[in-house]
Amino acid sequence: MLRRAVRRAASLATRTALHPRQFVSGSASKPSLSIWRRKKEMGKEALIAAKELKRLRSDPLRLDRFVASHVSRLLKSDLVAVLAEFQRQDQVFLSMKLYDIVRKEIWYRPDMFFYRDMLMMLARNKRVEEAKRVWQDLESEHVLFDQHTFGDIIRAFLDSGLLSEAMDIYEKMRQSPEPPLSLPFRVILKGLLPYPELREKVKDDFLEIFPDMIIYDPPEDLFEDQSGPGYR
């Protein structure tokens, strides 16, 4: 029996040497989906809170009391859902209110999609000062947008006629350590069609980075009758 045990141990050692176990580190495993990308459904408490927040928004004192007594007790999923709903409704004041609340929560972690949604909503509503504040916050938290997100945000500002702000963000995109991609440039170039001078600048950057690619140029008179807002 002793000899059999020795042979079994030797066989096991041989198999282990030939086929060592493989361990997957946390960084190599698939990351969990950001809470800001998950489907957001409002529960009963969230619906009540959203309705009451909208009712009290013109009464700062009662609004702050309700936030302290009810909103601060919402579950994470409910708070996220209420913020998403206010963003969808373009409720800028209430979105900024919840934005501040979320960033103070113990579970809060800086997230690219959290900031993307805020900036897209603020761009739609042409709220420049709030957008600048949000951008300062994300920079202080060292949040890095990927190139596709940069393109979407810049396009949102362009579509709202906020050219100066859009081009400021474009310069940040150009300085990003993320490798450039052609699709975000095309998204931006399409948004710049009414602004040929700015479009030419971005087009030159694009062709410098992607010299083998082609950019479609519309007929020169396509926008001659359209007087878009100037570059501030």
Rank of each mutant, 00 (worst) to 15 (best):
E41V: 07
E41N: 04
E41C: 01
M42P: 00
M42G: 02
G43E: 11
K44N: 10
K44M: 05
A46S: 14
A46C: 09
L47S: 10
I48T: 06
A49F: 10
A49M: 04
A50G: 04
E52N: 08
K54Y: 09
S58G: 09
L61N: 10
L61K: 09
L61P: 06
R62L: 12
R62N: 14
R65Q: 14
R65Y: 12
F66L: 09
A68I: 12
A68M: 08
S69F: 04
H70F: 08
R73H: 11
R73F: 09
R73Q: 11
R73C: 00
L74G: 03
K76M: 11
D78V: 03
V82A: 05
L83T: 03
A84P: 00
A84H: 14
F86Y: 05
F86D: 11
F86T: 10
R88E: 12
Q89T: 12
Q89E: 15
D90E: 15
L94E: 11
L94C: 04
M96C: 13
K97Y: 08
K97R: 11
L98E: 00
I101G: 03
I101V: 15
V102P: 00
R103I: 07
R103G: 08
K104A: 01
I106T: 07
I106F: 00
I106Q: 01
I106S: 09
I106H: 01
W107G: 02
M112I: 04
M112C: 05
F114A: 02
Y115N: 05
D117A: 15
D117V: 02
M118I: 13
L119I: 13
M120R: 13
M121W: 08
R124Q: 13
N125H: 06
N125G: 07
V128D: 01
V128H: 00
E129L: 08
E129I: 04
A131Q: 09
A131E: 03
A131H: 02
K132N: 13
R133N: 14
R133I: 14
W135H: 07
L138F: 13
L138C: 04
E139G: 07
